[in-house]
């Protein structure tokens, strides 16, 4: 009995002090600081990259239109010219070409996993594809440089480096993104949809081609755009196999550059604040703006999801 009196007392003491109110504030403030850190970081990132990138035009007086459309990149002569179109072209061509290679592969892999051999697909193929996503980009670059480039050099005219090598390396890198989203899209399909098609006597392929593919189109596109976004921002793997010559190539097997490869190569060799340096920040700004575009396209596509 005495013990329970003690208990009452210890309860009451706690109640008077109400420490849990302070504790609730600790939780609220701690988590709020964390999320605030994240949001502030993102905003300062956008702000600083944008202000640096814009200073090329404001401080150094480079014409923005010339930068976007100019074909000549020659920053180190007396009258430097900053035409970034070759880089922009390089980035778009490699990433879109990579998506063109990876999209059908990803779709087929998804069909395999969901429709053809779910057991084997889920336990083996899917983990394999996820492993591809875990391989560091420098390793992709290294393999590209020591396997794909020599192979292309033997098979095609030129040095082997260029858009084709870059796109091929990128396609393997973005394959996991595209496959994962395609797999999710296919497995979310209601069973009735396919059964309806089979009931009409359609073969599996007809069902996939006429029913499954059109219904999941927005999601397939989401996966492809996500893949392009990733390829667009990838720096080192591409830089290692693309050759890095600052002009628009005449073939897929000729040295060229992308936005990321130009930044990677020159950022360390230019002095902060110089026009040669600022113009690299303008390239970064283009990259960042493209990220926004990709995010909004993906949001738009997700909004159009048919299921």
């Amino acid at each position: 009995m005495e013990r329970s009196v003690n208990m009452e007392r210890s309860y009451n003491k706690r109640q008077e002090a109400k420490p849990h109110i302070a504790e609730e504030w600790v939780g609220k403030i701690y988590t709020l600081i964390c999320i605030a850190f994240l949001v502030i970081t993102i905003f300062s990132m956008v702000y600083f990259v944008a202000s640096k990138g814009l200073s090329t035009f404001i401080v150094n007086g480079v014409n923005a239109f010339d930068l976007l459309t100019g074909l000549k990149w020659n920053p180190d002569i007396d009258v430097p010219s900053f035409g970034a179109l070759p880089f922009i072209f390089g980035s778009f061509s490699t990433s879109i070409l990579a998506a063109i290679i990876a999209a059908p592969l990803g779709f087929c892999a998804a069909v395999f996993i969901v429709e053809l051999a779910p057991k084997f697909g889920r336990t083996f193929l899917q983990p394999v594809i996820e492993l591809l996503a875990g391989i560091p980009s420098v390793v992709y670059g290294f393999v590209g440089l020591s396997v794909i480039v020599p192979l292309f050099r033997d098979l095609f005219p030129g040095q082997g480096i260029g858009i084709a090598a870059g796109a091929l390396v990128l396609s393997v890198m973005i394959l996991p993104t595209i496959t994962t989203i395609a797999t999710d899209a296919l497995s979310e399909l209601p069973a009735g949809l396919k059964e309806g098609s089979y009931a009409l006597g359609a073969t599996r392929w007809q069902t996939i081609y006429r029913v499954v593919l059109p219904t999941t189109m927005p999601q397939q596109m989401t996966g492809i755009v996500l893949g392009i976004a990733r390829a667009f921002g990838e720096a080192l793997a591409v830089q290692m196999v693309i050759g890095n010559a600052p002009h628009i190539p005449h073939s897929l097997f000729e040295s060229t550059s992308t936005l990321t490869s130009a930044i990677t190569l020159s950022m360390g060799n230019t002095a902060m604040g110089s026009v040669q340096n600022n113009v690299l920040w303008s390239l970064a700004l283009i990259l960042m703006l493209m990220t926004f575009v990709f995010v909004f396209v993906i949001r738009f596509l997700e909004g159009r999801k048919k299921l």
Binding site: L38, T41, I42, M45, V49, A229, F232, G233, E234, A235, T260, I263, T264, A284, L287, M288, T291, F292, F294, V295
Partner: peptide, 11 residues
């Protein structure tokens, strides 16, 4: 947060 997760690492 979604935007940050899609920023290229070089940025």
């Amino acid at each position: 947060v979604e935007v940050l997760s899609s920023f290229p690492s070089i940025i």
